[in-house]
Structure formats: C-alpha cells, structure tokens
Design a protein around this nucleic acid. Structure first.
Lengths: 161, 161
DNA sequence: TATTGTTATACTCTATAACTATA
DNA sequence: TATAGTTATAGAGTATAACAATA
C-alpha cells in the first residue's frame, strides 16, 4: 500500500522521442464483449451512413426496404416484428418512404385494418442504386476488419436471434 | 420469368399442423455484418441495463467509471478521447456521477483549465457492487451466445480500433 | 376484447454551436 | 489562436400511452 510511493523512478522524466502522454487504458472494460461489439457497430453505422448519403438512406430505412423486397404484400406488423421496430416508429418511417414514392400501402383483402406493403417501380429502381452503395460499404467494412475476420464474425453472429 | 406462375402447387393449402404464417425473411440483409452486429449489441445493452438496474448505472456511466478507475487523475478530454464520448456529453455525465459523490474533479496543477478525475471512496465502494452486477450480465451473455462463441467474438473484436 | 395503424409525448444518445477561462 | 470545460439546442432512436377502425 505504501511501498509504491517510495520509488523515485524518473517520474515524468522520460528520455527519448517526446511522446504525447499515454492515452488512458480501458481497464476492466477489456473483459466486456459488449464494449467491443458497440465500438465496431458504431463504425459500421457511420460508414454505412456516409456510403448511402447520395441516396439519403438510413440503416432502418434500408432494412425495411430489403424486407419488403423479400416479402412483398406483408403487413406493417409483420415487417416490424421481423426487424424489431416498434409499430409507431415503423409508421413514421413508412410515411417517409411513401412520400418518396418508394413504397405503397394497399388495403389488404383479408383484413381491412392492415396494409399490404410493396415496393413501387420507382422504389425498385432506387433500391438498385442503394444496394450498389451498400455493397461499397460492405467492401470497406471488409477492408477495415479484414475479409477473413468479417467472414468469421458474420458466421458467428448469424446463428441466433 | 413467366414459368414460375404456371405451377399450381397447392398454394396456400398447406397440410399438417397449422402454423402461423411464415414470418418475413431478412432478404439481402443476411449479407450484412452490421445487421447482426447491431442485433446482438442491442441484446447486450438491454441485458446490461437490466442487470445494473439495482445501481441505476448505464453503459456510458459504467465505461467512464472503469476508465477513471484505471487512470486516476486524468482530464475529461483524455477520458473522452479514449471512450469516444463528446466532451459536452461527458461533462453532463460526470456532473451526474459527481452528484452521486462517486467521482471528484480536482483542479489540475499543470493546467488551470482542466480537471483531474478521481473516484471517491464512496465511488470505489459503489464500483465493487457495480462490477459484481456487470459480471452477472457477462455470464448471461455467455449463456446467450455460448461461452465458446463469446470468447471467439471478443478475440476477433479486440484487435483493432 | 384484441389487433392494426396513427399520433403524441418523453427520454436517451449524438452532434453542434456558442460561451468562459485559461493557455 | 487554440484548448478545456460548460451550457443550450436539435435530430434520431426508443418506449409509452391514447385513439380510431376493425376483428
């Protein structure tokens, strides 16, 4: 407890090339998967945002467009459940996509309460561009983490939900 | 293109146990590491929040406490850079920790503009409890993804920034 | 009663800009 | 002029509750 203070080992008297003071370490944070997960996730989302800026598409919008494309005619409730998006938030998000004429909501035959969602031809066209930009992002991500690491990560992460 | 429509293969006439309609698939989202990264990250943060609820600590607060513990006496700027927290946000966050008497800001000898950050004795005590709760969270995470997968993920993610 | 979708509110996180006091 | 910290504002994401129409 007291021993440590007795040494006078050239404190603050580093020789050699002047470095900036060592940046603080992470301490016990090093043991938490969540911290590193979050760090990479932030990098990914920021890079995605920049990559998709020409089309002004955000991650949530992108995911909704892809799920509608893969499942045309489904209801908002179904899409929301798949992507874990609150129906309130999804309603506003879809309103935005509707204003850009990328999607339409048609009355569902079966249930007058629910809307069936479809991409419009304009939406399909836009999605082609969007996917091209998203592929560029994914390529940058592969460069950032290394292609092998990217593959390992996606294989590890895909298998549960 | 037209061929697919000609078949009349019992559309909507599934036999066997009545399942709920298939939930929508992810489509091209399956190719994006970011999507799966984000999904797990949300699970982790929610579980962390629940685990730490008894101490009313959030992820950002936790990370700041750990970095101060590992680097006592550093400035807000230094802590903020390490954790990528905006100085404006960090100021308010530290204000909150100060109100709970978990940290103190002393005037730095060298530079009258900057504050040196320390845990208080009360903060150190709190951090012991907090770490215990955080370990429970990490154990639940290990159960959620599998201990082996957790280790693989953390090894893969730790090596860059 | 329960569900679908809408609207409104509130809280957190994030990003900025403006300000002070020091350097 | 640049930096450390503070304060204020605004946007996006998230979580609720209340509501209308329909089941």
């Amino acid at each position: 407890m007291k021993r440590r203070k007795s040494g006078k080992v050239a404190v603050g008297a580093k020789v050699g090339p002047r470095k900036p003071a060592d940046s603080p370490g992470l301490g016990h944070l090093h043991q938490h998967l969540g911290y590193f997960l979050r760090r990479l996730q932030i990098w990914v989302f920021q890079d995605f945002l920049e990559a998709l800026a020409p089309m002004k598409v955000r991650t949530a919008q992108y995911s909704v467009l892809l799920v509608i494309e893969a499942n045309p005619g489904r209801s908002q409730a179904a899409i929301g459940q798949t992507l874990n998006i609150e129906r309130a938030r999804l309603a506003r998000l879809l309103h935005g996509l509707g204003r850009r004429n990328w999607i339409v909501r048609r009355a569902s035959g079966r249930d007058a309460r629910s809307h069936s969602l479809y991409l419009t031809p304009k939406g399909e066209k836009a999605l082609i561009k969007i996917k091209t930009l998203a592929e560029k992002h994914e390529a940058r991500l592969a460069r950032h983490v290394g292609p092998a690491r990217r593959k390992q990560l996606i294989d590890l992460l895909r298998d549960f939900g």
